[in-house]
């Protein structure tokens, strides 16, 4: 690790100021950033911790659904979202291990937009709104491919607002080593239709499976998927699974998510 300065503002406004400086970078749970720094692959001049900002913490129901502060650790979401949005709580409770869950945050996760991360599938499938220090961004506009998002220089996530579906479930198939999602599918059924968010599988990051959404909006049952095929061409391939295997997982897990959603 190289040397760096450290700031811990207590308001969003102060954080915005600190992050405007040259070489400043946001630090939330540090579960991704700190290992990268230890390996000397990143060397920010200043780390601006977002975990001391009260307005970025916690889970509550408000306008438009469930509001989750960007600096809320996964373990807190797992506990506090359980009675409002069980599928989301479930997802949070299945991330990493207890140590990771007690530090890693939803803001850090969706800012990083790791193609194998869990949260992006929920944000997309819920049609959530990503709130930043500057604006509100619809989920469909927010994720822009592997590790990239709509966030601009100096912009950071302050909260995420999740509309609460009638039924939902997340089914994750672990990558055997990292236990991130080799493929994970989040299915959310709203009054006006079904949304399906798929993580881990696409070669351009998290995506919505439109055909499944159409089929499930007409008939919310696993059998509604039987005629569908996922094209391996759009899938990622690596040591742990071919594109064809991931295409298979997308379909299998979507069916299981529908069954789990009930």
């Amino acid at each position: 690790m190289h040397n760096f300065d450290f700031a811990k503002p207590s308001t969003i406004a102060d954080a915005a100021k600190a992050l405007a400086a040259d070489g400043a970078q946001a630090l939330s749970g540090g579960q991704t950033l700190i290992p990268t720094m230890k390996q000397r692959l990143a060397a920010p001049a200043t780390l601006v911790s977002l975990t001391g900002i009260a307005e970025m913490q916690g889970v509550c129901v408000g306008d438009g659904g469930l509001h989750i502060g960007a600096a809320t650790p996964h373990a807190v979401v797992a506990k506090e979202a359980a009675k409002h949005y069980p599928a989301l709580a479930d997802l949070a409770g299945g991330i990493g291990d207890p140590a990771v869950r007690s530090r890693g945050t939803i803001g850090g996760s969706i800012a990083n937009n790791d193609p194998a991360a869990c949260y992006p599938s929920a944000v997309l499938a819920s049609g959530a709104t990503v709130v930043t220090n500057k604006r509100k961004i619809a989920a469909d506009d927010y994720f822009q491919g592997l590790f990239s998002t709509a966030l601009e220089e100096g912009e950071f996530v302050t909260s995420v607002v999740f509309p609460i579906p009638q039924k939902a479930a997340y089914v994750k198939f672990n990558q055997p080593a990292s236990r991130f999602a080799l493929t994970g599918v989040f299915v959310a059924k709203f009054a006006n239709g079904v949304r399906v968010g798929v993580t881990g599988a696409g070669n351009d990051g998290v995506f919505r499976w439109a055909e499944a959404e159409r089929a499930l909006s007409a008939d919310f049952s696993a059998s509604a998927l039987s005629g569908l095929k996922v094209d391996p061409a759009g899938m990622n391939a690596d040591l742990h699974g071919s594109a064809a295997y991931r295409a298979n997982l997308v379909k299998v897990l979507t069916g299981r998510a529908v069954m789990a959603a009930g």
Binding site: F173, P176, L182, H240, G241, S242, A244, Y245, N248
Partner: peptide, 11 residues
């Protein structure tokens, strides 16, 4: 005998 290998062997 990882998941992907089993699936590949079968399919």
């Amino acid at each position: 005998v990882s998941p992907s290998r089993v699936w590949q062997a079968v399919n």
